[in-house]
Amino acid sequence: MKLLQCPVNGIRPVSEFTYGGEYREMPDADTCSDKEWATYVHHRHGAPGLKKEWWYHGPSGTWFIAERNTLTDKVSRTYLYGQENKA
Protein backbone atom coordinates (compact mmCIF):
# COMPACT_ATOMS: atom_id res chain seq x y z
CA MET A 1 0.00 0.00 0.00
CA LYS A 2 1.20 3.44 -0.90
CA LEU A 3 2.75 5.85 1.56
CA LEU A 4 1.85 9.53 1.46
CA GLN A 5 3.46 12.41 3.32
CA CYS A 6 1.15 14.75 5.19
CA PRO A 7 2.91 18.11 5.56
CA VAL A 8 1.90 18.25 9.23
CA ASN A 9 1.80 14.62 10.38
CA GLY A 10 4.53 13.00 8.28
CA ILE A 11 4.57 9.80 6.26
CA ARG A 12 1.51 7.62 6.65
CA PRO A 13 -0.12 4.74 4.75
CA VAL A 14 -2.63 5.91 2.19
CA SER A 15 -5.46 4.30 4.18
CA GLU A 16 -5.29 7.28 6.57
CA PHE A 17 -6.19 9.64 3.74
CA THR A 18 -9.18 10.58 1.59
CA TYR A 19 -8.68 11.74 -1.97
CA GLY A 20 -10.28 15.12 -2.63
CA GLY A 21 -10.15 15.41 -6.41
CA GLU A 22 -7.84 17.36 -8.65
CA TYR A 23 -6.90 20.84 -7.51
CA ARG A 24 -8.45 23.18 -10.05
CA GLU A 25 -8.79 26.93 -10.16
CA MET A 26 -12.40 28.08 -10.24
CA PRO A 27 -13.09 30.54 -13.08
CA ASP A 28 -14.77 33.81 -12.12
CA ALA A 29 -18.37 32.63 -11.61
CA ASP A 30 -19.70 36.08 -12.44
CA THR A 31 -17.89 36.70 -15.71
CA CYS A 32 -17.11 33.36 -17.34
CA SER A 33 -19.33 31.95 -20.06
CA ASP A 34 -21.83 29.15 -19.45
CA LYS A 35 -19.60 26.83 -21.45
CA GLU A 36 -16.51 27.70 -19.43
CA TRP A 37 -18.45 27.08 -16.23
CA ALA A 38 -19.82 23.72 -17.41
CA THR A 39 -16.32 22.63 -18.44
CA TYR A 40 -15.03 23.53 -14.99
CA VAL A 41 -17.83 21.65 -13.22
CA HIS A 42 -18.04 18.52 -15.35
CA HIS A 43 -14.85 18.03 -17.35
CA ARG A 44 -11.59 16.61 -16.11
CA HIS A 45 -8.25 16.03 -17.80
CA GLY A 46 -7.77 12.29 -18.19
CA ALA A 47 -4.28 12.41 -19.72
CA PRO A 48 -1.56 11.10 -17.42
CA GLY A 49 1.00 13.50 -16.08
CA LEU A 50 1.90 15.61 -13.09
CA LYS A 51 -1.31 16.63 -11.32
CA LYS A 52 -2.06 18.70 -8.26
CA GLU A 53 -4.44 16.79 -6.03
CA TRP A 54 -6.32 17.51 -2.85
CA TRP A 55 -5.74 14.95 -0.09
CA TYR A 56 -7.23 14.88 3.43
CA HIS A 57 -5.56 13.26 6.41
CA GLY A 58 -8.52 11.80 8.33
CA PRO A 59 -7.19 11.38 11.87
CA SER A 60 -6.00 15.01 12.05
CA GLY A 61 -8.41 16.70 9.65
CA THR A 62 -5.64 18.20 7.52
CA TRP A 63 -6.21 19.21 3.90
CA PHE A 64 -3.14 19.51 1.68
CA ILE A 65 -2.03 19.43 -1.93
CA ALA A 66 0.04 16.59 -3.41
CA GLU A 67 1.81 16.85 -6.73
CA ARG A 68 1.58 13.37 -8.19
CA ASN A 69 2.62 11.89 -11.50
CA THR A 70 -0.45 9.85 -12.37
CA LEU A 71 1.54 7.64 -14.75
CA THR A 72 4.30 6.61 -12.35
CA ASP A 73 2.22 7.17 -9.18
CA LYS A 74 5.16 9.07 -7.68
CA VAL A 75 4.39 12.03 -5.45
CA SER A 76 7.07 14.68 -5.86
CA ARG A 77 5.95 16.92 -3.02
CA THR A 78 3.09 17.80 -0.67
CA TYR A 79 2.25 21.10 0.98
CA LEU A 80 -0.53 22.93 2.76
CA TYR A 81 -2.72 25.10 0.55
CA GLY A 82 -1.02 28.41 0.03
CA GLN A 83 2.39 27.14 1.12
CA GLU A 84 3.56 25.91 -2.25
CA ASN A 85 6.64 28.08 -2.16
CA LYS A 86 7.78 26.79 1.17
CA ALA A 87 7.58 23.16 0.02
Binding site: G20, W54, Y56, G61, W63, Y81, G82
Partner: peptide, 20 residues
Protein backbone atom coordinates in the same frame (compact mmCIF):
# COMPACT_ATOMS: atom_id res chain seq x y z
CA UNK B 1 -19.85 18.46 5.23
CA UNK B 2 -17.22 19.07 7.91
CA UNK B 3 -14.46 18.17 5.46
CA UNK B 4 -15.84 20.46 2.76
CA UNK B 5 -16.23 23.28 5.26
CA UNK B 6 -12.58 22.85 6.18
CA UNK B 7 -11.44 22.87 2.57
CA UNK B 8 -13.49 25.86 1.51
CA UNK B 9 -12.45 27.76 4.60
CA UNK B 10 -8.85 27.47 3.43
CA UNK B 11 -9.73 28.47 -0.12
CA UNK B 12 -11.71 31.50 1.01
CA UNK B 13 -9.23 32.54 3.71
CA UNK B 14 -11.92 33.60 6.17
CA UNK B 15 -11.63 34.09 9.94
CA UNK B 16 -13.59 31.11 11.14
CA UNK B 17 -12.86 28.11 13.37
CA UNK B 18 -14.76 24.86 12.98
CA UNK B 19 -15.34 22.14 15.53
CA UNK B 20 -17.02 18.81 14.72
Amino acid sequence: VYREMQRNLQLWGMQVTLVN
